[in-house]
Computed example of a mutant assay.
Amino acid sequence: MTVLGAIALPQLPPDRLRAVVQAADESGLEELWLWEDCFLTSGVATMAAALAWSDRLKVGVGLLPVPLRNVAIAAMEFATLHRLFPGRAHIGVGHGVQDWMGQVGARVSSPMTLLREHVTALRQLLAGERVTVDGRYVHLDGVALDWPPTAAAPVLVGASGPKTLRLAGEIGDGVIISAGNTPDDVRAARAVIGDVPLVVYLHTATGPGAAERMERERVNWGYPTIVDRAVTGDADEVAEQVGRWAGAGADTVVLQPAPDDPDPEGFVRFAATVAAIRRGTPATAR
């Protein structure tokens, strides 16, 4: 059965995150996902807080841009999260938005090479290995974590184009693709990445003004049409539509609200209701 989650966008002020986490927790939502977009909120800080505010909620963060982090620091951060909250942290990395990486002086000439080197070393460190590597961008000399995770610590990799998808399927423990991908796009991605877990974000709107919010998203993201790129409607309608992305190969579908959604707490409750409908155990929608 496809897992269904929801995103708390970083456009939400950080001081409002706790209420969203509590709403997700109380509603029975299985997974809450966070982003680290420049220059909004830290993915690691918000993930740690969200995990601490719940005893059961699984929290994902995707994506953390690898150019912003030395791989040893990333491994220390991720290992700490996995040991503090075993089995509840889903961590995704990617090469970042190149314009943003340029703004902070972290843009590299070969993002693909950096991503390969970083993820390879990161997975080795999280597996408890002592790592020595002298790559184009990643350099480690006998580095090992004193407190590696005590269980498997998967690293998901974000991807878009065919080359990055192929690399992500090769080096990652799973792949994340952004909202705006149609069911046919998901099928194509699945064909490229193989059998690794696939997380798909999905533009979603419900309630009054849903269609208008999706039209603004279409303009914001530059889509020629919003058809097959988003879902709108009540919980039953969205649950039915989500099945198209699940049937195309998504192992996890994460409902992504518009940044101007008027009720972030209500949105995660709505996502929990959609998930319950798909499981055959309806709950109360917002």
Results as ranks from 00 to 15, higher is better:
residue 273 T to W: 07
residue 39 F to K: 05
residue 188 A to T: 12
residue 86 P to Y: 13
residue 47 M to K: 01
residue 168 A to S: 11
residue 101 M to A: 12
residue 180 G to R: 02
residue 78 F to S: 06
residue 196 V to S: 08
residue 225 T to E: 03
residue 270 F to C: 06
residue 173 D to W: 03
residue 196 V to F: 03
residue 239 A to Q: 05
residue 207 G to L: 10
residue 128 G to K: 11
residue 188 A to L: 13
residue 158 G to Q: 09
residue 286 R to C: 11
residue 109 S to R: 15
residue 54 S to Y: 05
residue 157 V to Y: 07
residue 221 W to C: 09
residue 6 A to F: 04
residue 142 G to K: 08
residue 258 A to D: 12
residue 240 E to T: 15
residue 193 I to N: 04
residue 140 L to F: 10
residue 263 D to T: 05
residue 153 A to N: 01
residue 6 A to N: 05
residue 78 F to W: 14
residue 25 D to R: 06
residue 152 A to T: 14
residue 271 A to G: 10
residue 249 G to H: 04
residue 106 A to H: 13
residue 197 P to L: 01
residue 202 L to W: 02
residue 123 R to I: 10
residue 257 P to S: 08
residue 120 T to Q: 11
residue 83 R to W: 07
residue 211 A to S: 12
residue 174 G to I: 01
residue 246 A to G: 11
residue 184 D to S: 13
residue 261 D to L: 06
residue 58 K to F: 00
residue 184 D to P: 01
residue 98 Q to H: 14
residue 107 R to S: 13
residue 207 G to Y: 08
residue 22 Q to M: 05
residue 23 A to M: 09
residue 229 R to N: 03
residue 161 G to R: 15
residue 38 C to I: 03
residue 70 N to R: 13
residue 7 I to V: 15
residue 29 L to N: 12
residue 53 W to E: 04
residue 88 R to P: 07
residue 206 T to R: 10
residue 49 A to F: 08
residue 152 A to Y: 11
residue 106 A to M: 15
residue 100 W to H: 14
residue 220 N to T: 07
residue 179 A to P: 09
residue 284 T to C: 02
residue 267 F to H: 06
residue 282 P to Y: 12
residue 183 P to I: 05
residue 222 G to Q: 09
residue 31 E to W: 11
residue 176 I to N: 02
residue 220 N to H: 14
residue 33 W to Q: 07
residue 97 V to I: 15
residue 62 G to Y: 00
residue 220 N to S: 13
residue 203 H to T: 06
residue 52 A to R: 09
residue 141 D to W: 12
residue 67 P to L: 04
residue 126 L to V: 06
residue 153 A to W: 08
residue 126 L to T: 07
residue 175 V to M: 05
residue 263 D to V: 01
residue 127 A to R: 14
residue 32 L to S: 10
residue 159 A to K: 11
residue 77 E to S: 13
residue 92 G to Y: 05
residue 39 F to G: 14
residue 185 D to G: 12
residue 66 V to Q: 01
residue 205 A to Y: 03
residue 82 H to R: 13
residue 219 V to R: 15
residue 235 A to I: 13
residue 232 T to F: 03
residue 177 I to Y: 00
residue 254 V to L: 11
residue 219 V to Q: 13
residue 210 A to I: 03
residue 252 T to A: 09
residue 230 A to W: 01
residue 87 G to E: 05
residue 223 Y to S: 00
residue 249 G to M: 03
residue 272 A to I: 08
residue 9 L to V: 14
residue 74 A to T: 06
residue 163 K to R: 15
residue 218 R to C: 09
residue 257 P to Q: 08
residue 71 V to M: 04
residue 194 G to P: 11
residue 176 I to E: 01
residue 182 T to H: 04
residue 224 P to I: 04
residue 48 A to N: 10
residue 234 D to R: 10
residue 42 S to R: 02
